[in-house]
Amino acid sequence: MLLRILRRTGILLASLVASTVLVFAFMAVLPGDPARVALGVNASDEAVGQLRREFGLDRPLAAQYLSWIGGLARFDLGTSYISHAPIGPQIADRLMVTLWLVVTAMVIALVVAVPLGTVMAMRHRRPSGVLLSALSQVGVAVPAFLAGILLITVFAIGLGWLPANGWTPPDQDPVMFVKQLTLPALSLGIVQAAVLTRYVRSAILDVMREDYIRTARAKGLTPTQALRRHGMRNASIPVITVLGLQLATLLIGAVVVERVFVIPGLGSLLLDAVSNRDLIVVQDVVMVLVLAVLVVNFVVDLLYLVIDPRLQVSSR
């Protein structure tokens, strides 16, 4: 077990280093000059060259790369080309906002999907289960931003119950924070719930076909009792995998909903930085996103070990 953890840690570190190279190489081929964007439409070539030197863009790529990852290793994300502000605190702020949104959405998704998916699985031969299943299919087919637009139209503009958009940090005004978080979290959560429901359902259906459940049923337990006593633990494994991945990819996936609800999250920061060619910000944000996915995968892997000791021996 320890060996496995060590091995996974090694892979995590190697992946991190590999991804810094990938990300940096990608930035190097990005056309468009940050210095020119900063100086605007009428800038002279001399001024642009001067600013490029200031940014260090005239150095060889290898030197630029080394100074970047050197900074990363010291947790120094550098200074934005465009705003001249340190990037670390900016990313931390934006990440916080996006995490609030994404985690709330995932909680909503879980609260909806687990019971619903279970019901769908247990009743999969009955009309109610079939109906729920069909509904979840429709839910998967709706783009999240469309859900957001519909929610705004009905609850913000139609009924006036909640604000249509905006963001207030929780320590500034907790009531407003909750009000403004509700609709975006719902629109993200509903769509994720539709997806998650289908995983829960199929995980439970798989488990219910296992021999140990049949044995339990033969001993006279109802399907629900058998599931609760013997199946839940096993069914949770694929669901956790999916949950982890949803969480990590939603950090960027939420950008569409952030745009609809005017939320200053990580995705918006990335889009702005891309269009301003604030390359160092782009690099840093992408690295944060990649780091998040890798770490979540790592944690999910460790969770397997806790939940399902069999995985220690079986080679996947």
Binding site: A156, I157, G160, P163, A164, N165, F261
Partner: peptide
């Protein structure tokens, strides 16, 4: 979003 913000008083 700008329109919606005015419509809802933000």
């Amino acid at each position: 979003a700008l329109n919606n913000a005015l419509l809802t008083g933000t």
